[in-house]
Nucleic acid binder design. Structure first.
Lengths: 91, 91
DNA sequence: ACTTCATATAAATATTTGTTCATATAAGTT
DNA sequence: AACTTATATGAACAAATATTTATATGAAGT
């Protein structure tokens, strides 16, 4: 197992970040939409977005004042699905 | 995402525990074999094994003085594989 | 029964990670 | 240009997690 893989796993293994990924699964969102839906502080969301971006899971683009985030690749959904399946099986 | 799923993810998202899972993928192992191969303290390995067991990923049985650990279910490998694939793709 | 080997556990400590708080930046508005 | 809105960042703080240390347990051998 590489360092990269570990970082990816750790990045996904956080409730807030996992929720963000699930949201982005439905489509592009700006930071304020994410904080509103998850009801968390702006700064906190921002930190988590940075973490997700750092390990390549999401991308962003500016649109006027807002910054829109999206999943870097739909294949991320496979991981999320797999995790859900496994969890239901074991826990 | 449920609490259970999160706990599962967190459990796998640790280098030592991930390595243990990869070892057990090859077959049943006793604690001393695991500590020898990973070159970590007995007590540390023991703690990690407990964590893995707690979230249902591994099982154990006694065999004389030794205690043998194994994966609870081969479908765990699917998760490990998926993680590896994703990591190589993104990071 | 005593000793040794294999493993577990609890408490103490160290390290990592998440959260908040205060401040900065950058685009759009007035 | 000053102000507001949207987001980012760094430092301080809090919480969670991993590691170590010391000790306990339980089976097997003498």
């Amino acid at each position: 197992m590489t360092d990269k893989q570990l970082r990816l796993l750790k990045c996904v293994a956080d409730e807030t970040r996992f929720q963000i990924l699930l949201m982005l699964k439905k489509g592009e969102r700006c930071v304020c939409e994410i904080m509103d839906e998850l009801d968390k502080e702006q700064s906190l969301i921002s930190h988590h977005l940075r973490a997700l971006r750092k390990c390549g899971l999401i991308r962003r683009r500016r649109e006027g004042k807002k910054i829109m985030y999206r999943l870097a690749d739909p294949s991320i959904l496979g991981l999320l699905t797999n995790v859900e399946k496994l969890a239901n099986k074991f826990c």
